[in-house]
Computed example of a mutant assay.
Amino acid sequence: MSFQPIVAGSGLVAWNFLQRTMDTQTKAFESSPAMQRDLDYFEENIKNVETAEDLTKDRRLMRVALGAYGLDEDINHTFLMKKVLEEGSQASDALANKMADKRYLAFAKDFGFGDLGGPWHKQDSFVENIKEQYTTRQFEIAVGEQDESLRLALNAVRELEEISVNGGSDNTKWFSVLGSPPLRNVMEQTFNLPSSFGALDLDKQLEVFRGRMEKLTGDSEISQFVGEDAQQKLVDRYLIMSQINTSQGLSGGQIALTLLQY
């Protein structure tokens, strides 16, 4: 049986406890027998893969490969994932470049089956990177089995930090945020946006997000999330709004007082 993360309380209380115990909990999770079996199998067998079809035919390899990108739910979509891998990331008409969810593009690019010079999966650095990503995301999933809002908060901090240091304009970084379903979920809940918001013109959505982000953190740029201060402001607000939306443990007076602080 895998190590189950310990979540104490809910909302900000649970988040602060998780942050204090993160190193200990993640090490215990990674060392659990179930995780070690997955990681060892991947490391030992990925070197035998020659084609995208070889990879997609091995369910145990695919569980780790997809899990490293948060694409666990695609484990049964063998034909789709084979096509994503085979077409790669370099051609403008490649399937991964047409998909709004940019996790597929990262998946295709990192494996490189359809790209010039690829594939890359036999490099030692590649294997270690996949193992690290898989462990991180599976820990988030395990946390989410107890509190989904904490899973999304962990994912948001990780993804925002990654996007903030990537090249490109801040508009490009914002579009990366909007192209990630988990991140978009966090942003929409943080700013209490209705479900119909996604139907607006993309430029209008970006304008609204920028305006509300500036009110929250004093900065409308995604590049600010390289720093912990901006990360914490966003997470605090998200967890507060998540608790309000689910009415978990906050009275009307507590809600009003908490909101006045942000």
Rank of each mutant, 00 (worst) to 15 (best):
S149L: 13
L160D: 12
T258I: 05
D219M: 08
A153D: 14
K102F: 07
P181W: 13
V13T: 12
N155K: 10
N171Q: 15
T136N: 07
L95Y: 09
D229Y: 12
A106S: 06
Y104W: 11
S247V: 08
E188P: 06
A156L: 14
S220R: 12
V64E: 09
E50V: 00
S195G: 06
S195M: 01
A256W: 12
D38M: 07
E161Q: 15
L193N: 07
L216G: 02
G252T: 08
F191M: 03
L259I: 09
V177L: 14
A28H: 10
L154Q: 14
G118T: 10
A65E: 06
L216N: 07
D203R: 06
E207L: 08
N129A: 11
W174S: 12
F139D: 00
N171I: 14
R184L: 14
Q261V: 06
K233G: 01
N192L: 10
A106I: 02
D236I: 03
E128N: 12
Q90M: 02
D147G: 08
G67F: 15
L105T: 09
N166I: 06
A96C: 11
Y238K: 02
H77Q: 11
A153T: 15
Q243W: 14
R37W: 04
F126A: 11
Q205D: 07
F197I: 00
K102N: 01
E44V: 05
E50R: 08
A100M: 04
Q90P: 05
R237T: 01
D115K: 02
S247N: 04
V64F: 10
S149A: 15
P182D: 09
F111Q: 01
N76M: 07
I46Y: 06
F191Y: 10
E53R: 11
L12I: 12
Y104K: 04
I240G: 01
G117H: 03
A65F: 04
M213R: 11
L178P: 14
Q25G: 07
F209K: 01
D54I: 03
Q19V: 11
S196M: 00
S32A: 06
E87C: 01
R212L: 09
E161A: 08
V7K: 04
Q4M: 06
A108H: 04
G218I: 12
I244Q: 00
A199Y: 11
V235T: 05
R59T: 09
T21M: 02
Q146Y: 15
S92H: 14
A34N: 00
N155W: 15
K82L: 11
D58E: 03
D229P: 04
E132T: 09
T135D: 08
D124T: 07
L154E: 09
R237M: 02
E86N: 13
L206Y: 15
Q4K: 10
S195I: 07
S125R: 08
T135F: 14
F209N: 03
R184M: 04
D147V: 09
A65D: 05
T135C: 12
G249S: 05
Q123M: 13
I222Q: 10
Q25W: 09
Y104G: 02
G167R: 13
E145A: 09
N171Y: 11
D38H: 14
G117S: 03
L234M: 05
F175N: 10
L55F: 05
V143W: 15
D38T: 06
E50T: 05
L200R: 14
Q25H: 05
Q90H: 05
T56H: 00
